[in-house]
Amino acid sequence: MTQPQHLVIMGVASSGKTTIAQLLVERLGWVYAEADQFHPQANIDKMSAGTPLEDDDRWPWLRAIRTWLDEQDQAGRNTVITCSALKRVYRDILQGDDDDVFFVHLSGSPELIADRMSKRAGHFMPTSLLPSQFSTLEPLGEDEPGISVDISGTPAEITDEIVERLGLNA
Rank of each mutant, 00 (worst) to 15 (best):
S152M: 11
S48Q: 11
L129Y: 08
G108P: 08
V89H: 07
M125E: 06
Q37P: 04
K87R: 14
R77K: 15
L129W: 04
F124G: 06
G141D: 13
L130K: 10
V31H: 15
D56C: 07
R66Q: 08
D57M: 12
G50K: 10
T159Q: 00
W68T: 07
G76V: 09
D70F: 03
V31E: 15
Q41E: 14
H39M: 06
A35P: 07
G122L: 10
G76H: 11
L137M: 12
F103S: 00
S152V: 13
R66K: 03
S128F: 05
F38W: 04
S48N: 09
T51C: 04
D100I: 08
W30V: 01
D115Y: 14
P126H: 08
G96Q: 04
P110V: 10
H39E: 01
I93P: 00
G76E: 11
L94D: 03
F134M: 01
D115A: 15
P110Y: 13
A114I: 01
V104F: 09
T136D: 05
D56Q: 10
E54D: 12
F103G: 07
A85H: 03
E138V: 02
G141E: 13
L86A: 05
D56A: 13
G50Q: 10
A35T: 03
P145L: 14
D97F: 07
A121K: 12
Q72V: 02
V80D: 07
W68K: 00
L130P: 12
Q74G: 15
Q95R: 15
D143T: 15
E138M: 01
V104R: 08
K119E: 14
D98Q: 11
H123C: 02
T127R: 13
W68E: 03
F38I: 02
A64D: 10
A156R: 12
D56N: 11
D55S: 04
V31N: 08
W59A: 00
L69T: 02
R88H: 14
E54V: 12
M117A: 14
S48F: 00
P52M: 07
T136A: 09
A35L: 00
N78W: 12
S107G: 10
V89G: 00
S109F: 07
P126F: 07
L106C: 08
S84Q: 14
F102A: 01
E34T: 09
A114C: 02
A42I: 12
L168I: 03
I93L: 05
L106F: 09
V149G: 06
P126E: 09
V101N: 04
K119A: 15
S132D: 14
T136M: 10
E138N: 01
T79W: 05
A121I: 14
P60S: 06
S152P: 09
A75T: 09
L53C: 08
H123Y: 12
L130F: 08
A114W: 03
L94H: 06
P126W: 08
F103D: 00
E144H: 14
N43T: 01
T154M: 05
G50L: 05
Y32V: 06
P40W: 00
W30C: 02
S109A: 08
Q133G: 04
N43E: 00
L86Y: 13
V80T: 12
R165E: 06
F102V: 12
I147C: 06
L129R: 03
D115I: 05
I158W: 04
T159C: 13
P110D: 11
M47V: 11
K87W: 04
G108F: 03
T51S: 01
G50Y: 10
